[in-house]
Design a protein around this nucleic acid. Structure first.
Lengths: 146, 146
DNA sequence: TGTGAAATATTGATCGG
DNA sequence: CCGATCAATATTTCACA
């Protein structure tokens, strides 16, 4: 993981479909070398997968909320219960008063309410505190150069 | 945006590198038809870009935190100020007591503290409340089928 | 590890029906 | 939307530094 790898990652984050020749030229390597670098980055798991970034609004998902989930029990083994709710994009165990922080996207606030209902149905969940996002400034991938 | 489009999006989210022939077969279309569908999804902006998913830990970014940023002024025009901090992955204006919610990834808690310092330097910011993630259950793209 | 080059296989991209 | 075509690219391989 040197600076060249980080540069390649940044380029791939911007456009994963570009030719290896272009990648190589941008970082000062030959096509074959760039290819080999990227192959190893995938092999090591640094690059998890190539995916597409989908506009949530185009899917009708206009409501974004972060929900602090309070619990009365250890939540460390509840990953599947949260993953079973498709509207949840992220779930993290957090330090502090709440136990789990989830990121939720729905079409309407009624559907958000329904997600809260399903959260309450998870074993150990004792409360929720939802915060609705009014506007998203930006959402971007982690910066390899920080 | 019918069910076929949503199916294509799900397939592309899982692997954007697969051949159009495979995509077409999976949804019951010819190669050319699948190609055309995806082209239009890009054209419409439903698919923003093809990118790679990078493992944050491989970049040395082992600390994840969500920071509630309180302010004493209107923050609606401060997108660039937040974007100028590379450790910030997301920034949203939120309803509630705080004004902005940001997602931050750093290598160490010291660097997280430094991000907080830079947040305070933004005009109008009057306070921060950071919540550190102890474990990430999952992070996944928005589900086209919800 | 990297370079340059060459070969093949696969795929992206386009067009007529 | 389909089938077929053609150009571009990925992928693999090689000898060599």
């Amino acid at each position: 993981m040197d600076d060249t790898d980080r540069a390649l990652l940044t380029l791939l984050q911007d456009d994963a479909g570009q030719a290896y020749a272009a990648l190589g030229k941008a970082v000062g390597l030959s096509t074959a070398a760039a290819h080999e670098r990227v192959r190893k980055l995938r092999e090591r798991g640094v690059v998890r997968r190539t995916t597409v970034e989908v506009d949530p609004r185009s899917l009708g998902l206009g409501v974004l909320a972060f929900v602090m989930v309070e619990s009365s029990a250890w939540m460390g083994d509840s990953a599947e219960a949260f993953a079973a709710i498709p509207e949840i994009e992220e779930a993290h165990i957090i330090a502090g008063s709440a136990s789990v922080l989830v990121k939720v996207r729905t079409a309407t606030t009624e559907q958000l309410q329904d997600v809260l209902r399903r959260l309450y149905a998870i074993d150990g969940v004792s409360g929720t505190q939802a915060t609705v996002a009014l506007e998203t400034f930006f959402e971007r991938p982690p910066s390899p150069t920080s």
